[in-house]
């Protein structure tokens, strides 16, 4: 029997995976994937909670998160293409000029 807790544990594990990805990855494309994992882990949690509480607003939130994740990737990929055209790389360490 799969209960609410199972779903929430999956959501938490995915969130941690995404968080580690955001912190460790230097490849910009991989970093975008990680943020997608972050947001989608939240979706799982929201839908499970919404079903458990018998309340629709959680599912509506999940839909909006999907929309936001899509637009975030659109803007992110735009920046990434700009970077690739100029530097021929998508590695974050290479473009690092400012510090201090």
């Amino acid at each position: 029997m799969i209960t609410l807790n199972h779903y929430l544990i999956v959501a938490a594990v995915l969130f941690v995976i995404g968080m580690i990805g955001v912190m460790r990855r230097k490849n910009l494309l991989m970093l975008f994937f990680s943020t997608e994992i972050l947001l989608n882990s939240v979706n799982i949690g929201f839908v499970a909670l919404s079903h458990y509480l018998n309340d629709l607003s959680g599912q509506i939130f999940a839909f909006f998160i999907i929309a936001i994740a899509a637009s975030e990737v659109a803007v992110g990929l735009g920046l990434l293409i700009l970077l690739y055209k100029r530097k021929n790389t998508v590695d974050l360490d290479v473009i690092q000029n400012m510090h201090g």
Partner: peptide, 10 residues
């Protein structure tokens, strides 16, 4: 910002 968005959603 993308990371913050994930934290806010969670």
């Amino acid at each position: 910002g993308a990371f913050a968005a994930g934290l806010f959603a969670f």
